[in-house]
Each structure stands twice: as structure tokens, then as C-alpha cells.
Design a protein around this nucleic acid. Structure first.
Length: 316
DNA sequence: CACTTGACCTGTCCGC
DNA sequence: TGCGGACAGGTCAAGT
């Protein structure tokens, strides 16, 4: 679930918490979550000090003074939560999703679950918990937890100089919020797949970086484009509109701290509130905020896809 | 070459 | 109430 806005929110949080801290110890219970040799870990991670926290696409990069970098992909259910020596704030220890009373949890409405008045409520109880895969302990006894319920994510330790050479970074497309990324760049990227449907192209990380299911649906709704529309039938003005809407949606999502559907939390274990502002994502059966028609859910490019059938008939 | 499907995993929810 | 299966969706690998 973490897409560009969620990973960026975590980056912002961690960049105020981690630089300057020295790693004293690393533990993990699932090797695929931490596929690094004992030797590298001992030599380049333990006793290293964190210099910087960066992001490229949906990947977080934590640079160390050992000239190595922690390359972290959260995939669908990954979390990176920092806990200081005082622990998480007491008020944030309550947990709705992790409650043992499953009936109560499932009866919450969207607004109750995400807290219209408290969009930053915590989703995290005491750590480590059963989803914790990697624990970094710093010399001041504070800790960074990598949690990942579904075990798809990973934390790789690589020489900083080699990070741009890994397969993913060699193939990944441009940053959609980059200052130099223009509407004409966007059109050229998208039109590399003229006979594909627009949603599949938006989700393809080699075309444009960082877009996932939530922001693909939201930006296509905003630009009034049906997700199955073939790229070469979309006009230049309509692609320009999609470029503008996509950037607007991503920026708003960062401002709201990302989208918390089930698992996502920021560096302090708190939820993002963007879904309260979403127009179509996870809103099937509700009214389209623009025309009032009922939002429906389809399957496009193998993904659950939410549209307004009245607003998104085609792209002209 | 382009597109689709399956694998990687666990937790939740639905229908029988 | 229990159980099997569908579903969630980021990315890579394999298949069509």
C-alpha cells in the first residue's frame, strides 16, 4: 500500500529522527526481510552513524557514514516506526485495528476507523509485535522497527555508490513531483505504451515512479478518464489534465500524511488521513462528489479499480 | 515485444 | 460456529 506519498511521509518523519544516531545492534527473525550477510552487517551497519534519509520512487534510502545505504521497500504492509527512549506517546498506544475484539473492529465506520477529528491517531501498540521483522537499536537505546505483516518487504544493505545500479533503479521512471518533470515529459513517458490501458501504464514503475492503486484511481477520476482507455486514444489536452491532477493528488496526499487503509503508519506509528478526502478509492456504493452518480468497483489490470461511471466514460 | 498470470505472504471477510 | 476460498495489491518471474 505505501505509494509515493506514504513513503515520502515516512521519509520526512525519519529525516527528523534518525540522522546523527549510531546503530548499536540489529536483529531480525525473517531472513527474507533482511537478506544481508553477517559480515556486511557487522562491518558496515553496526556502529555506523546515519547521515541522511532519502526516497526514490517507493523506496527509502538510509545513508550511513560507512559508505553503505539501507535500501528499504515496504511493499504492501511494511512499516518503519521509530520509538524514542520514552516510547510512543501514551495517548497513541490505543489500537483499533489490533484490538482483540474483532467484532468491534469490523463494526467501525470509515470515519470512526480513521478518526475524522483525529486523523493522526496511532495504529501501533507496544513494539515489537508479531509483525516485527527487523529491529535496529541505537546507542541511545531508541529503536527503529521494520514491521511487515505479509513479509513482502525487505531491508537491503548496499554500498551507497551501487544503489543507482540495482535493477530497479536502472529501470524506474522519473519522479512525478520532480521540479524538472513537465507535462510534455509526462506525455512522452505515457505514450511509450500507446496500446495499453491508461491505468496499467500509470501503475508501471518504469514509466513514471511512485504511483500505486490509490493514486491511479484518484487521478483518473479527477481527470475524468476511464481506466481502460487506450493511451493512444487520449488527446494531448486530456493527458495534460491528467498530469496536473496527478501532481495535485500526490501533493494533497503528502499534506494529509498519506492514506491509511489498514496498515500504513508514519515514522511515529500514526495514521494518514488522505482517504477522508479521497473521491472514489474504497468508496464503491457512495455518491460521486462531482456528479452524484454511484461509484462502482471494477477490475482493471488485475487490480480493484474505483470509478464514477458517469464522469469517466472515456477520454476526449 | 506486450500483456497476463502466478508467486511471494498473512489477515480479514464472505458464503455455505 | 467453522471452514474454505476470495481478496487485498507492489514487484518480479514465467508463461501466452
Amino acid at each position: 500500500m505505501p505509494e509515493l506519498p506514504e513513503v515520502e511521509t515516512i521519509r520526512i518523519g525519519l529525516s527528523g529522527l534518525l540522522p546523527g544516531r549510531r546503530i548499536a545492534d540489529v536483529r531480525y527473525d525473517w531472513p527474507k526481510s533482511f537478506p544481508n550477510s553477517e559480515e556486511d552487517t557487522k562491518q558496515f551497519l553496526v556502529n555506523a552513524t546515519i547521515l541522511d534519509v532519502r526516497r526514490r520512487a517507493k523506496v527509502l534510502l538510509i545513508d550511513l557514514d560507512s559508505a553503505y545505504t539501507l535500501v528499504i521497500h515496504l511493499k504492501m504492509t511494511g512499516q518503519l516506526v521509530y520509538v524514542g527512549t520514552q516510547g510512543l506517546p501514551v495517548a497513541s498506544r490505543q489500537s483499533l485495528v489490533r484490538t482483540k475484539d474483532k467484532q468491534a473492529a469490523s463494526s467501525y465506520t470509515l470515519e470512526q476507523r480513521f478518526g475524522a477529528g483525529h486523523p493522526n491517531d496511532s495504529l501501533i501498540g507496544d513494539l515489537p509485535d508479531k509483525s516485527t521483522r527487523v529491529i535496529f537499536t541505537f546507542t541511545d537505546a531508541s529503536q527503529l522497527f521494520f514491521n511487515d505483516q505479509r513479509k513482502f518487504g525487505w531491508v537491503r544493505l548496499l554500498p551507497t555508490a551501487e544503489v543507482p545500479n540495482i535493477d530497479f533503479f536502472k529501470k524506474v521512471g522519473p519522479e512525478p513531483l520532480g521540479a524538472e518533470f513537465t507535462s510534455s515529459n509526462f506525455r512522452n513517458c505515457i505514450r511509450r505504451r500507446p496500446r495499453s490501458c491508461i491505468k496499467a501504464v500509470l501503475l508501471d514503475q518504469t514509466i513514471v515512479a511512485g504511483i500505486g492503486n490509490i493514486y491511479a484511481d484518484e487521478s483518473l477520476w479527477a481527470a475524468k478518464i476511464h481506466p481502460t482507455t487506450l493511451v493512444d486514444t487520449i488527446s494531448t489536452p486530456r493527458l495534460n489534465r491528467l498530469y496536473e491532477e496527478l501532481r495535485t493528488v500526490l501533493l494533497l496526499a503528502i499534506e494529509k500524511g498519506g492514506s491509511t487503509d489498514k496498515n500504513y503508519v508514519n515514522a511515529e506509528g500514526k495514521k494518514g488521513s488522505y482517504l477522508l478526502f479521497a473521491s472514489v478509492f474504497r468508496r464503491e456504493g457512495q455518491a460521486c462528489p462531482r456528479c452524484g452518480a454511484t461509484i462502482i468497483k471494477l477490475r482493471v489490470a488485475g487490480r480493484g479499480t474505483h470509478i464514477c461511471p458517469k464522469c469517466q466514460k472515456a477520454a476526449l
